[in-house]
Amino acid sequence: MLTKALQNPFVSTLAVALIVVALPLVVGSNFHIRLATMVYIFSIVVLGLNLLMGYAGQVSLGHAGFFILGAYSVALGPSQLGLNPWLSMAGGVALTSALAFVIGRPLLRLSGYHLAMATLAFGAIVYVFITNEVDLTGGPDGMQVQRANLSVLGLSHLMSWYWLAGGFLVLSMLILSNLLSSPAGRALRALHDSEVAAGVLGIDVARAKLMAFVISAALAALAGANLALLDGHITPAAGGILRSVELLTMAVVGGLGSLVGSVAGAAFLVLLPQFLTEFHDYEHAILGFLLVVIMVMLPLGIVPSLNAVMRRWLP
């Protein structure tokens, strides 16, 4: 009964929602609130990436590209077009989704390593563009982001972004849970097991893949916009190739094919470096070592592997 409940995406969404609501009651420090907010923001991207990789079975090494597009849309909208930050965020997510729709068609004809290479190239193009258009984006030093006003609720800048990012995370999980228990979601899962079999069953393979790609791009842009508004300053390094690899690591470490695994993976990679600063020069070596240990001991990722253990021990 318990194990079954744990695998229900709606139950895990509820659990995450409870954590989001309860956390500010437990921790008071702005530093901890900022870390939690970053976990939520990265969870949003990783959720999308997980939909694409864990469910639809397509690899992307370019999601930092979508992430940074969302981030720069809230930086550029107010400064270049005089739009308000909220409209810029919505516009950024919409434009990024449209871009994903356009490039997704040709890209998703590829698979495996070829798809990984093509998405990597996409990420690199976005990064180089943003780095070089100095007049528009401020170049490698980045640009200021106009602070969005949330003070109507009487919250501090940080707390308002905590609630917003937490809200977006719960909303994203809810939408994905709904999607995954719909026919479209079952089609995606079929795709992961075998594209040929899925096609034979009458699933429009290209369309299902494209849908997962566009949704994941939209979530990446949403997360990027949240990060830019939280930080108030954005640099291209926030969306470099290393960020794409980091996002992929979060998805794999947390567990592919598990929504709550995305949150666990993001939490792991956001929080761990903060603990490891005590080791100074060795922190990167230790971080790498811990990742290897986790992948060896929990090969399916944190959440699915622990689930499997629990299934063995619980009724």
Partner: peptide
């Protein structure tokens, strides 16, 4: 060490102030 990432600098700045 921020690893040359501005977002990490910001997190550590918060940590220096708060913690």
């Amino acid at each position: 060490d921020d690893g040359s990432d501005a977002n990490a600098s910001r997190t550590f700045a918060t940590r220096l102030v708060e913690e």
